[in-house]
Simulated assay, not measured.
Amino acid sequence: MSTSHVLLGLLAEGPKHGYELKRAHDAHMPRAKPLAFGQVYATLGRLQRDGLVAEGDRDREGGPERTSFALTAQGRERLDAWLSEVEAPAPFVASALLAKVVVALLAADGRRAGVYLAAQRAAHQQRLRELTAAKLDPESGLGDVIAADFAISHLDADLRWMDTTIARVADPNRGVRS
């Protein structure tokens, strides 16, 4: 995820200060890792340096002074270009799950991989139940449901892979051509 582009998108709604941007990010991306305030302000600094955002009003209502930031014309162009780019499918398979299974196969001749996969499968199924419940919660907004759908699709794919891998570990010659 490009934090810069997400912040530009949030500023497309109108000027915001850093605290509002962090809250908006966390509200609109409910299943994403929350942004740290330091990350928001560092990113705003780079966006301002690059002419993509400009300082707006300063507000001191009920606390420390807050500077709002607004999208510039150049920032809107950059956002529009990013939104027009199709994301390439990931060229590499990189996952802690895959790495652990491969290392377990190397280290323990398949026995440990089977035990690990069974435990990981149970954790994935638990997470699926949690996400399904979150989708059905009447308090869930569209962003919550879309994020849950995204995570559920990935968990389903992982579970299918785990089932195939458990079967291969049980019979290492299954589906392997010489």
Rank of each mutant, 00 (worst) to 15 (best):
M1T: 10
S2N: 15
T3R: 13
T3M: 04
S4R: 09
V6M: 04
L7A: 01
L7D: 02
L7R: 01
L10K: 05
A12R: 05
E13N: 09
G14Q: 07
P15D: 06
Y19V: 07
E20W: 04
K22N: 09
H25I: 05
D26C: 08
D26F: 06
M29Y: 14
P30V: 01
R31P: 00
R31D: 04
K33R: 15
P34V: 03
L35I: 09
A36Y: 08
A36L: 12
T43G: 00
T43W: 04
G45N: 03
R46P: 01
Q48M: 07
Q48L: 03
R49F: 10
D50Q: 08
L52G: 00
G56R: 01
R58F: 00
D59S: 07
R60F: 01
R60E: 10
P64A: 02
P64N: 07
S68M: 03
A70E: 14
A73F: 13
A73M: 13
E77Y: 11
V86Y: 02
A90D: 15
V93Y: 09
V93T: 15
V93L: 15
V93K: 13
S95D: 13
S95R: 08
L98T: 10
A99D: 13
A99Y: 05
K100Y: 12
V102Q: 08
D109C: 10
A113S: 09
R121G: 04
A122W: 06
A122M: 07
H124T: 07
Q125M: 10
Q125P: 00
Q126Y: 00
R127W: 07
R127M: 10
R127C: 04
L131A: 03
L131T: 09
A133K: 14
A133F: 02
A134K: 05
A134F: 00
L136Q: 14
G141C: 00
I146Q: 13
A148E: 03
A148G: 06
D149I: 04
D149F: 08
F150C: 12
F150K: 14
I152E: 11
H154A: 11
D156F: 15
A157I: 03
D158K: 13
L159E: 02
L159T: 05
M162Q: 05
M162Y: 08
M162R: 03
T164P: 03
I166K: 09
A167Q: 12
A167M: 11
R168Y: 06
V169M: 06
V169L: 00
D171P: 02
D171A: 13
D171R: 13
G175P: 11
R177E: 08
R177V: 12
R177K: 09
S178T: 05
S178A: 14
